[in-house]
Amino acid sequence: MRHPTPTDSSDALEILAYADGQLDNDPAARARMEALLAADPALAARAHAYRAQTDALREAYAHRTAEPLPSRLTGALETRPRSPSSTRSIGRVAAALTLVLAGMAGGWVLGRAWDAPLPQAAWSADGLWDQVDGLVAATPTGTPGNATEQPLEWLSRQLSLMLRAPDLSGLGYTLKDVRAVRQNGVAMVRLSYQAADGAGLRLFLRPRWQQDEAPLQVAENGDVALAYWLDGPLAAAVVASRSGPEIRSLAQAVRRAMSGSALLPAGVQEPIPFPAPGPTPSPTPGPAPVPADLADGGGHHGDTPANGLSTPGNALNPFGTTGSEPGVVTPN
């Protein structure tokens, strides 16, 4: 009929793919096609016609992207399907909530088995919010594996390395709480630190089974930032109410502190001191003897009711989910 070559023949599809630039990343296929076109003027003309068509299409619609945006479209983004309370008086609570969410995201980062590296773009800051609904499905857990084992002992056994809570006193942080948490089915240890001014910091650690390392990655969300990295058998994430550059240097310091004293080859050093020394209530059997404001949010915002934030169905929960905290169980 009208078509000189059957539309669906593999050659026709290859020519189109070539003309569409889809072979640009495949030098062999591209060279093969160029040889084919050089030998056959009819095919070359066909490729040329495809490209001319593409140019005509682009030109025909180019004006659209240059037009000013109708306000109804920019306004469409302001639609708030489920608005959390907009009362300004709860601004501080909202800030604490942000930290809660970011803290969950810290665990989320590790829970996602990012040994298989995700695209860099997947870790820009705004993801913290989107990750929340994945977190609330997290399963509460005791210390993984053995109910009587302390979280860091469990982790040390997983790593075959001696591990203790890194001493961050040089950074002004003291350890307040150590818990086993489980997110996306991945067990990990969460350490909560607090500075003298009340600022919180959370360190998430989980075992992995590779020996490679990965450089520090940083993500920000509002006034909260997250940094994570891989150190051989250990994956780590730090979350704090800091700017990106601050969290980076903070995380670098944490990483140094861990390589210095926290991670020691098994059998070389004394048994794990747990909990870490410090003016901290020991996680002894029984209910969590930790400050209420650290129990859920790592709350560093003074007297904000961080506990209330983890209440299921809390009005502040922007996603209306039934739990805003990943599974957390005090070691016993």
Binding site: R64, T65, L69, L77, S124, D126
Partner: peptide, 20 residues
């Protein structure tokens, strides 16, 4: 969250072209 909106807003011109 505002970041997501910002990311979406950047795509509006392309979405308009595709829709057209």
């Amino acid at each position: 969250m505002d970041d997501v909106k910002w990311l979406m807003a950047r795509e509006i011109p392309r979405l308009r072209r595709y829709a057209l």
